[in-house]
Computed example of a mutant assay.
Amino acid sequence: MIRLAYTVFFLLLMANFACAEQVLVISVENKDWAGHYQWVKGELTGIDADIFRRVASELGYAIEFIPFPWKRATQMAEDSLTDGVFDLASTARRGSVLHFVDTPLSQETIVFWVKPDSDFSYQGRFSKSLRLGIMHGEDWSRWFEESGTPIVTSFTSFGAAFSSLEAGRIDVFANYLTSTRELINKHGFEEEIVPSLPIIPNYYYVALSRKPGHRALSKKLSKSLAKFFDSPAYADLLKIYGVKNPDNAFHPSRSLNQ
Rank of each mutant, 00 (worst) to 15 (best):
V8K: 06
L81Y: 04
N30S: 12
S164L: 10
S141R: 15
S118W: 04
V28G: 09
L221G: 05
K239D: 07
S90F: 12
F229C: 01
D48H: 05
A77R: 11
A15L: 14
D139F: 07
Q123G: 14
F158Q: 15
S231F: 03
R169Y: 14
E191V: 01
W143Q: 15
G35F: 04
N175L: 05
D32W: 01
F65P: 02
F144N: 09
T109F: 12
T91E: 02
L11Q: 13
F144L: 14
I134T: 12
V206E: 08
P150N: 12
I199P: 00
L4P: 02
K186H: 04
A15N: 05
S27L: 04
N245V: 04
A49S: 15
L221R: 02
T91I: 03
H214Q: 08
N202A: 02
Y61K: 10
L237A: 08
T149W: 01
F229D: 04
D50I: 03
V55R: 08
T7K: 10
P232T: 05
L132N: 07
N175M: 07
L237C: 05
A226R: 10
I51F: 03
D171W: 02
D50R: 12
L208T: 01
K128H: 13
S96E: 15
E43Q: 15
N202I: 00
A92V: 13
T153M: 10
I63E: 00
T82C: 03
K223N: 07
V206R: 01
F144D: 08
L225T: 09
G188C: 00
A77T: 10
S224I: 00
S106Q: 12
G60L: 06
S179L: 09
T91P: 06
G242L: 06
G35Q: 06
V101Q: 08
G242R: 07
T156I: 15
H36C: 07
F68M: 08
K220E: 14
E29L: 04
E192C: 00
I66T: 08
G213E: 01
A249R: 05
F112M: 14
M135R: 11
E21C: 05
I184L: 04
P116A: 10
N248Q: 09
P67W: 03
E58Q: 13
Q38F: 02
L177E: 13
G46A: 08
F189Y: 13
A20I: 06
H136I: 10
D32T: 08
K239Q: 12
N185T: 03
F9L: 11
A160K: 11
S80D: 13
E21T: 11
V101H: 11
P69I: 02
I63S: 00
E192W: 00
A249N: 05
E145T: 13
L4Y: 03
A216L: 03
V55H: 09
Q22L: 05
G42L: 07
A174M: 14
R93K: 15
F17L: 14
S106R: 10
F229T: 05
K115S: 15
L98E: 09
R53D: 07
D32R: 01
V194R: 03
A89M: 13
E43M: 09
F155Y: 15
E29W: 06
K227C: 04
D230I: 06
H99L: 09
M14V: 09
L256V: 02
R254G: 01
L197H: 00
